[in-house]
Design a protein around this nucleic acid. Sequence first.
DNA 1: CCGGCCATCTTAGCGGTGTTCAGAAACCGT
DNA 2: ACGGTTTCTGAACACCGCTAAGATGGCCGG
Lengths: 210, 210
Amino acid sequence: MERRTYHHGDLRGALLDAAESLVRERGVDGWSLREASARVGVSPSAAYHHFASRDVLVRTLADRVLAGLGRRMANAAARADPAQRVVAAGRAYVRWAVEDPSVARLVFRGGSAEPAAAVTPHPHDVLSAELDRLAEAGVLSASARAGAEYVVWAALHGLATLLVDGLVHVDGPRALDREAERLVRTAITGLSHEPPRPVPRTGPRTRRYD
Amino acid sequence: MERRTYHHGDLRGALLDAAESLVRERGVDGWSLREASARVGVSPSAAYHHFASRDVLVRTLADRVLAGLGRRMANAAARADPAQRVVAAGRAYVRWAVEDPSVARLVFRGGSAEPAAAVTPHPHDVLSAELDRLAEAGVLSASARAGAEYVVWAALHGLATLLVDGLVHVDGPRALDREAERLVRTAITGLSHEPPRPVPRTGPRTRRYD
DNA sequence: CCGGCCATCTTAGCGGTGTTCAGAAACCGT
DNA sequence: ACGGTTTCTGAACACCGCTAAGATGGCCGG
């Protein structure tokens, strides 16, 4: 990490980058702020002019990384066969987690830097959008659609975390995709066969990765 | 923490108890081994005669706590209406997590003290048993039954972790139960409407909380 | 009853951590 | 050229996990 000037230029961004590498290499907590500073070529205390604490650094990084997941899901849905959009988004979710488990753990751990963080597009929202399509297409009734994003999200998130934490193991990307697809397919057909409810469901509230 | 003898008697157990309280009070990582030792009334280094490291202490505690969840699920299923057994077990899973989020995070984080830990009954196994009942009752075909534990488990685990990590919020225990029930009902009906597969599915492997 | 053994606990200390704070260094507008 | 401001440094504090060497006292053979 060469540095020709006394002032760094973009120390804040560089620290986030270093932290992301360290998370990837050694896990969410397997590194120190001092180490990240050293990697950037700066004294330990320099970081405190950009982040109030190590924890804020980590949570800011989590926010930054989460947006990438949302984009990946949206892209996957966009380039998929119209009948497969949700499935594609779901597959992207768990693939992302498995490809980079440490970073995924970082994000899943929750706790955002800014409460009103504008993470766009948020995974929850791309799931919601796809389910809206399904409702318009008539495969989901109004009552089944209400809160449906939470059942799909829960299923995906569950598989992703079980894999990422090593609680469950699948061998190979093919099997992984199959499992993710089965999950969202099961959820969708389950929802579509749901007995109609009198009052539209409300479901959980205040989704946030914050 | 009085102590009349120089030797403690059951320092190992006392340390696990102290650690469990500390996890409950301040989160999985919001405490130090020194603090747990002090709470038990013992010098910091005493712990190292019973646990190779702080990490081993924590993972041993996780094992101990996990068995409680399995028992709760089994009990809930046992005392439930026969048609509601899986639902009851699932409800127990997410209730348990929400009632004691820090401890749940501890368990969910994974990593066991002994790889071959005989955690009985394991949550995965009680889910499996209930799905076997459903298969016998004919609501699940053989191909739908194969690997179904992972679908249900993933859904439950996803909701539990989303709640525990504060990524979603439901207000009140009623809403919580409703959500958990919807999840497993959706999964079951989704699985029961699954198009039959030629070869019985294999599904993920090596379930373990270790 | 006693002496010694040995598991158990303690004291002291090492290297490393997050964080603070006073001051040096370089950039920037005038 | 210079003063003010931003940005980084150096030293220090309290605490951490962990180790090594020694004190303590329950226990067992005599």
